[in-house]
Write a protein that binds this DNA or RNA. Structure first.
Lengths: 330, 330
DNA sequence: CATCGTTGGCACAACGTTGTAAATGCCGGT
DNA sequence: ACCGGCATTTACAACGTTGTGCCAACGATG
């Protein structure tokens, strides 16, 4: 059933190596032989055995993408883009899920052997710097979305502090004075950065802070946090949610109280998922350039693999915009 | 860097084959040697080279999951579940995206060689029966979600006709009389089945049909189709959308006209994505058991691989329920 | 004591590919 | 005719693993 180079070579009347040379575009092959091999390739429908090739080359042709969960819209979208970006550069992308737990992330990191993948792109939620020390997977890592200051690893992300500042600054500009934040988290790197941006923007405007934590960044967490804000004697007139799911939950909680968005409370999200563009009201959100994140991360992984890691860790910032929609404008 | 069986064997003072036997749980190994090999395994942190093993065994340990796009919530959720189900049975799951086009599906089918994967689970959108004939990937296929009557391939799905009938029947029960459908599609197998269910339910109730096509099943298609329904002199008082994204788009279009759901128009979706559970209003939807689909499909693929395809194609129906929410109840 | 079956261990080959280095054929120049 | 150099091709080994088959040691049996 499976066609090997041996079959191709026999059909073309040359050695296996010559057939291999044609497949790999080696220069010194007599035109006559090249033609015959190419005909044989077409006739047999030869496809190289990736496993054997990689065994020989010492590479696997796979990179892993480690995300919390594919069911989360942001990560579903991102994973789709990374798969596409990887394919364009000749890689297969293997997706691993961590369920957003440090345990899950440690487990995946430990299971990723150098035999299965050539590099990993990881979007960590709760990993400590120490985890990278005792769980070195033996392949290059590229982090996306979080900045762990004390780990020297390639990193691709938007400027989270600036993005949060932009989001909150927008709320200030439209005249809000009691601006809450939902999504503080004890371990999550992005949470600290977004909180810092929130803090800066409010400090600049001389406004008070009102922060709610969220253990997971799911819709229900946003709804619960928003409900607790609405229970306050003086509820906020705006809320900055650290991702779109939290914001969607917040919209739901606000609607349940019969309040209006944006008239009573303005809402800003983060990630610019398509869900937010169709929610009621549509959601203003920080819009990271997901294409840029995906292709930059894949590119960085490729360079790291090809150079055997012989360059300084890079910290690449990708662009973002603020997509303004109904939830902050009449 | 990479530890091989040779290293383990040397450390344990046995032959490579004995080490291999321990790794693979072969029975006849002297306890003493087994212990020493196990110590060596632990000490070196040995991980088998999957490529080499597969080269030898003739299997790859990978199955492919072919879906239109990971950014679509339903497929993101499903892919997450398939990865998890695969992992539990010892498989790596490789995700391929087709962009919901027949061309994309043909391309993926053609590219999947027997070298890279042992089987594929495919959720086809637009494939013709003929495509399976001229593009045999050489590995077992399991189809999910669509029923192509004239192709003898394993198939896992809910009873789409019954599900659609259930959804429309629910609309009839709550007193709706002008019930539209959004999502008819010339090639999509599921569309035909859901349309059939819609047809049956309306025939049973003696109500008129009102069908709108949707070329892609995205939010914007639902919004556009709904808008065209609302432009009718006699707009519908209920609409059955063939997936949740269409329904979310429909909700948006209805809201844009200042109409209320469910008072003016009731809406039912299909897929029960979490997005629908948080939309405004929350969305009544057909809820397939996605866990069952994922694990059944993986299980079927495994059996097919292990038995070399030596059994009749199976057609397995997984359960579903109707999740009733605000969009069809006051 | 000879024979046999069982248990355990190992050498070897093979999976399909590609890098290395050596072999082959051909050319022009002496 | 011979040689050196070049273009082209090939044999061979190796990547890490596991199946096959042989061999050795052992205890049990006749």
């Amino acid at each position: 059933m499976a066609v090997t180079l041996r079959d191709v070579a026999r059909l073309a009347g040359v050695s296996i190596k010559t057939a291999s040379n044609v497949v790999n575009g080696y220069s010194f092959v007599k035109p006559e032989n090249r033609r015959r091999v190419e005909e044989a390739l077409a006739a047999t429908g030869y496809r190289p055995n990736i496993g054997a090739r990689n065994l020989r080359r010492g590479r696997t042709g796979f990179i892993a993408l480690v995300v919390p969960e594919l069911g989360i819209p942001y990560f579903g979208e991102l994973a789709g883009l990374v798969i596409t970006a990887g394919r364009e550069q000749g890689w297969n992308v293997l997706i691993e899920q961590t369920q957003a737990s440090r345990e899950g992330e440690r487990a995946v990191l430990a299971a990723l052997g150098p035999h299965l993948i050539d590099a990993a792109i990881i979007s960590p939620e709760a990993l400590h710097a120490s985890d990278f020390a005792d769980l070195d997977p033996g392949v290059p890592l590229v982090m996306i979305g979080e900045h762990s200051v004390d780990v020297r690893i390639d990193h691709v992300a938007i400027d989270n502090v600036l993005a949060a500042r932009t989001a909150v600054g927008h709320l200030v500009e439209i005249g809000r004075r009691r601006i809450a934040a939902i999504g503080a988290h004890p371990y999550r790197g992005t949470a600290a950065l977004r909180l810092a941006g929130y803090h800066q923007a409010l400090a600049d405007a001389g406004l008070p802070e009102l922060v709610r934590p969220a253990l997971h960044y799911h819709r229900q967490d946003g709804a619960a946090a928003m409900a607790s804000l609405l229970d306050l004697p003086e509820p906020p007139d705006a809320v900055f949610c650290f991702n779109d799911l939290l914001a969607v939950g917040a919209l739901r909680a606000i609607a349940d109280r019969g309040l209006r968005v944006p008239e009573d409370i303005a809402v800003v999200g983060f990630d610019n998922t398509e869900e937010g563009a169709y929610s009621r009201p549509t959601l203003t959100s920080i819009a990271p350039d997901k294409h840029a994140i995906a292709s930059t991360a894949v590119d960085l992984a490729r360079r790291r693999i090809e150079t055997d890691g012989e360059f300084e860790p890079e910290d690449i910032q990708t662009p973002f915009t603020l997509a303004i929609r109904e939830s902050t404008s009449a």
